[in-house]
């Protein structure tokens, strides 16, 4: 790393987690994730400090910061604010230059976007105030099944006869899941059924957007291999998943800071 290299940071202050990425020449140098926990300000400081120390630099070495996510307004540093859709698009594009459609299943909303060959947004759709298509649905079901969120994917892949959910509402699906448990349905079948319900919501969003390959899925929920496989089946296309799907928007934010470094 020569002295002339410039460092940039991207902060994604999401409803569930706050993430930071430090880049240099659009390569990821360091990253950190922490629960937002009701205090975006502290979480942002924590993840930024952590990623800066991983990268072995100080705050003064940063040539630019872009903040994004629901909590971006709480950012204490001088940072340009960019919508999380633009950041997510750029982050996925940096990792997969072939990406043309992005699916982001976040804690609050599901977003689908089409991007051009430069990683810029062409069009997008966001699920409207509905938990069925969001990561929150998985959290609800994991809670009533008393399993860890990380175990959902591997467990669901064992399912032979997925439970059919008759409703498209996460709240009603919760009571439906409880009824199925009472009837003796296996945990893996309930989870696979939840994935199907989510995938049908997500694929509707993507199809309405007139998706094009390659499709990249990001956001915390894409760590759930069972969900990714079900969505891929529903849209009828292979889905690419980043190695660290939670930090793609923060990575995109840092890359956008590099594109327009002057704050």
């Amino acid at each position: 790393m020569s002295m002339s290299d410039k460092y940039f940071a991207g902060l994604d202050m999401g409803s569930a987690f706050t993430k930071a990425v430090v880049t240099c020449n659009k390569k990821m140098m360091a990253s950190a994730v922490s629960p937002s926990g009701g205090n975006y300000l502290n979480a942002a400081r924590r993840v930024l400090d952590e990623s800066l120390s991983q990268a072995g630099i100080g705050f003064e070495n940063l040539a630019g910061i872009v903040a994004t996510g629901l909590g971006a307004g709480n950012c204490a540093f001088e940072a340009r604010k960019v919508s999380d859709l633009s950041c997510q698009a750029m982050g996925c594009f940096c990792l997969f230059p072939s990406a043309r459609t992005i699916i982001d299943i976040g804690g609050q909303f599901t977003k689908a976007a089409r991007i051009n060959p430069e990683g810029r947004l062409l069009d997008f759709l966001i699920s409207e105030k509905c938990a069925t298509g969001s990561g929150r649905f998985l959290q609800i079901i994991a809670r009533i099944l008393q399993i860890n969120i990380e175990d959902i994917g591997p467990l669901s892949l064992k399912s032979q006869t997925p439970v059919e959910f008759s409703t498209n509402c996460a709240v009603f699906a919760e009571s439906e899941a409880i009824s199925r448990i009472a009837e003796g349905a296996a945990k893996e079948d309930i989870l696979a059924g939840v994935h199907r319900a989510m995938a049908s919501k997500v694929s509707m969003l993507v199809k309405r957007l007139k998706m094009e390959p390659d499709i990249v899925m990001s956001g915390g929920s894409s760590q759930d291999a069972g969900l990714v496989a079900t969505v891929a089946q529903a849209v009828g296309m292979e889905i690419l998943v980043p190695e660290k799907p939670m930090i793609t928007a923060a990575l995109g934010a840092a890359c956008l800071a590099e594109d327009e470094p002057d704050i």
Binding site: L70, V82, S83, D84, L85, S86, R120, L121, D123, I126
Partner: peptide, 28 residues
């Protein structure tokens, strides 16, 4: 002409939730 369709609750307390959408649309 690019178009975004937004459904809202006729309540100013929900307006803030639309900010992300509007920003992304303007960036687009």
């Amino acid at each position: 002409i690019p178009v975004i369709m937004i459904e809202d609750d006729y309540s100013i307390s929900t307006i803030g939730q639309l900010r992300t959408r509007i920003q992304a649309f303007l960036e687009m």
